[in-house]
Design a binder for these strands. Structure first.
Lengths: 154, 154
DNA sequence: TTTTCTGCAAACGATTTGCATACAC
DNA sequence: GTGTATGCAAATCGTTTGCAGAAAA
């Protein structure tokens, strides 16, 4: 199943690359693989990915990581997320429209990021589309506050 | 009315500063004033503010602008917003809970930012608080897509 | 082949910091 | 007076870019 998931993602990558005239390279494959295999991290920065690559003795350079993350987002395979700490993170795009969006609770004290599922915004998207003529591709919701452990005190 | 608004904001600043042992300085006053007087901009980066200062022959340095924006956000007078273009912007915090939150539609093509009002998330906030124990202070919603002018083509 | 990709190092732009001086309290 | 704030310039950090060689198609 995890195996199938990875194969699916790699097929997807190959298809989307050639569709737009980009080439399949071992580096791009490797970087996507990291997201599929480290799903426990949910979101990773370029440095995070680079760190994992270095652990596995990979020779992939940091600039290549940046370029690949950029490309993978452009292809819709990854999604960019920003938590306001000045560095961009990426996560696998659950492109399946039946899969609920997930969003983030960011603790302003300990900076922990908690994920939550919701699909309440679909109605809102439609309202906005009708009222403003804006064609929505994606939305992002963040809640800032104190997590359970950081409430009270200081 | 605009005059009252400014006076109110400055009183607010003075109170919040001394409350925490910070000092009221002409620089901090000046920078806050820019947000009050240029409400037509909605959100400004440090460079935006610095630019306005230089036009008015002010001698305030860029580092001071950064420090003041930081402080004003910490005091809850300004709110940080990020549109993913790698530079932090700030806007006046409408601290009044009766004032609806406003959020952003960001055109992925022309980068235009459109504001919209909504208050649909209040219910959601309560649900989250109950389910996760997270104490929410603020939320931020962004929709990415194509604005009316950028739909179709390219 | 031909064009795209990579790795490296240098460049960049936004933001932060160290320090001596100036100012608010 | 005393401690905080300022302005400047240098430092930092994430990210981007130019370029020559390497590798997909």
């Amino acid at each position: 199943m995890s195996e199938n998931h990875r194969l699916f993602k790699l097929q997807d990558l190959r298809a989307k690359l050639s569709e737009r005239g980009y080439k399949m390279t071992p580096q791009r494959k490797e970087i996507l693989k990291i997201f599929v295999e480290h799903s426990e991290y949910h979101h990773m920065s370029a440095e995070d990915v680079y760190g994992i690559l270095r652990e596995s003795e990979s020779e992939i350079g940091l600039a290549t990581v940046y370029r690949a993350l950029d490309l993978l987002s452009e292809l819709g395979i990854l999604v960019r997320v920003e938590f306001g700490d000045g560095c961009t993170r990426y996560e696998l795009n659950t492109a399946d429209p039946n899969v609920h969006h997930h969003h983030h609770l960011i603790c302003v004290k300990c900076k922990k990021v908690i994920e939550f599922e919701e699909d309440l915004l679909d109605d809102l998207e439609e309202t906005i589309a009708q009222e403003s003529g804006f064609q929505i591709l994606n939305h992002e919701v963040k809640f800032f506050g104190y997590c359970k452990d950081c409430q009270g005190g200081d």
